[in-house]
Computed example of a mutant assay.
Amino acid sequence: MKKPNKDDLLAPILKKDVRYTAEAYMFIREALDHTVRKLDKPRHVSGQELLSGIRDYALVQFGPVAKRVLCEWGINECVDFGNLVFNLVNEGLLGKTDEDSIEDFMGGYDFTEAFLHPFRPKESVACLLDETVPAD
């Protein structure tokens, strides 16, 4: 019997929900693995913990273009991460507890702040103090 590959596993999800690309689902899986590795010991992670891990992973993987990459995959806000997770849960590709819900992903963080702000240039002290350089 042939072992199913990622395309086989994702095909039913991609057919049911066309908002997200296969890459978005693979990213969620990798971000979950990244988040679990950062824990003291492996355990179930909450939606809020996963959101934090997703942000960290996206910044490491994509740097200043993280927001653009996510948007190209159909991910525009934190609830999209939740939709991806629960699509995987509904297909039996991820597990959940009774306490987990899509609401865990609502709100979250602002994408511009989370993915662009870390790469904004730092203002110099002189600019902050509005100091002028004396003329010679």
Rank of each mutant, 00 (worst) to 15 (best):
P134I: 01
Q48E: 12
H44I: 15
I102H: 07
C71T: 11
V18T: 14
E23A: 12
G53E: 02
T112N: 11
P12F: 10
L39C: 12
K41T: 14
V89E: 07
F86D: 01
D104G: 02
G107K: 03
W73P: 01
T21L: 07
F27A: 05
D136K: 12
A66E: 10
L94R: 03
F115S: 03
G92W: 03
F119Y: 14
P4H: 03
E30T: 10
R29I: 14
T132K: 15
I13H: 03
F115W: 05
R19M: 00
T97S: 10
H117Y: 12
S52Y: 02
G95D: 09
V18D: 08
T21Q: 07
V36K: 13
F62Y: 15
G74H: 04
E49G: 07
S101N: 05
N87R: 08
P121K: 11
R29Y: 13
R19Y: 00
K67S: 10
D40C: 06
A66S: 15
D8W: 06
K6P: 02
Y109L: 05
K6R: 09
A11P: 01
R43N: 13
S52M: 05
W73F: 09
L50W: 00
H117P: 01
G82C: 11
F81D: 01
C127Y: 07
D100H: 03
E99M: 00
A66W: 07
L94Q: 04
D40R: 12
K6Y: 05
A66V: 09
A126G: 07
Y20F: 15
D56E: 14
R19L: 03
H44W: 14
V45K: 01
D56R: 15
V18E: 09
Y25D: 04
N90P: 04
S46Q: 09
L9N: 02
L9H: 00
L128Y: 04
D130Y: 10
L84V: 11
F81I: 14
R37M: 15
V45C: 09
Q61E: 13
D100W: 02
P12T: 12
S46G: 06
E113L: 12
E72G: 10
P118E: 13
I75F: 00
Y20W: 11
Y57P: 02
Y57E: 05
D40N: 11
K122R: 12
K16E: 13
P134G: 03
H34Q: 09
M1Q: 09
R19G: 01
V69A: 00
D17F: 08
K41M: 13
A11F: 01
F111D: 06
D100A: 06
